[in-house]
């Protein structure tokens, strides 16, 4: 008898293992149907208490939002300024291995640690407030932007760089005329993207005391002020929405 289908044993075993794992892990975490049922009831009550959103403390809300925006702007600028040399140092086509390898390692560490963890460490080291938030998001920006910068630089055409070098230009002129024109528009794209994501993240670092609206949000949660929580969440979503639209416009203007 001829075989109609080639049996795909790895896929079957894989799916079975995944299903078995899901059941086992659920029991490990102590998640039971009973617990979920009570949770659903709680969820209904929670939603009821969020409505209507309470905007009466709008001054506090606005203060938090403004601080978040400040953190986002400063950390993005710092992140980009530091990323320029780091990206160049990490690019394997322009930097020697002894320089690019450790730089890449440093960037990987910046990227692997979640910004909230970095924020906690900064809060413990340099105290509560916006400074810790700026420092944490600068580190996070470094991890992403420097990596993207390095990748963009590695993709450039070396022929153009050689041509500029052949004209007798010094290292700075080579960068300015051979490298920068090839990557400038992508750098601006990455920077805008990072501003957008820093703005999202700056609304959160406050949860661990690093400034911005997140602190207000966390405090409201702890006091069970769920109608104020709803107001803050709506404000954050609105801010992110507006930021996305503005970023889109800027991108279109630069094209």
């Amino acid at each position: 008898m001829r075989r109609a289908f080639a049996p795909n044993w790895p896929a079957r075993i894989g799916l079975f293992v995944l299903a078995a794992y899901a059941v086992w892990a659920t029991s490990q975490l102590g998640i039971t149907g009973e617990r979920l049922a009570t949770g659903l009831g709680e969820g209904g009550r929670f939603l009821a208490r969020m409505w209507p959103p309470d905007f009466s403390r709008w001054e506090l809300l606005l203060e938090g939002l403004v601080e978040s925006m400040q953190i986002a702007v400063i950390s993005t600028v710092l992140g980009i300024i530091l990323s320029l040399p780091l990206g160049l140092m990490a690019a394997r086509n322009l930097s020697p291995a002894w320089l690019s390898a450790p730089t890449r390692g440093f960037i990987a560490v910046c990227r692997s640690l979640h910004y909230v963890i970095v924020a906690i460490l900064f809060v413990k080291a340099i105290g509560f407030g916006a400074l810790a938030g700026v420092a944490a998001l600068t580190v996070a920006s470094l991890g992403f932007v420097a990596k993207l910068f390095a990748e963009a630089i590695e993709e450039i055409s070396m022929k153009q760089v050689e041509a500029v070098r052949a004209s007798g230009a010094g290292p700075a002129a080579v960068l300015l005329y051979g490298v920068l024109p090839q990557v400038a528009s992508r750098f601006i794209g990455f920077s805008l993207y990072q501003l957008d994501s820093n703005l999202r993240n700056s609304t959160l670092v406050g949860i661990v005391g690093a400034g911005g609206i997140g602190g207000t949000l966390f405090a409201a949660f702890k006091r069970f002020d769920y109608d104020f929580v709803a107001a803050i969440l709506l404000a954050i979503i609105a801010l992110i929405f507006v930021a996305e639209i503005v970023a889109g416009r800027i991108r279109a203007a630069l094209q």
Binding site: V66, Q70, V73, I74, A130, L131, V134, G211
Partner: peptide, 9 residues
């Protein structure tokens, strides 16, 4: 604006 107004001690 951000640098001049942010509250950093």
């Amino acid at each position: 604006w951000a640098i001049r107004t942010v509250e950093i001690i």
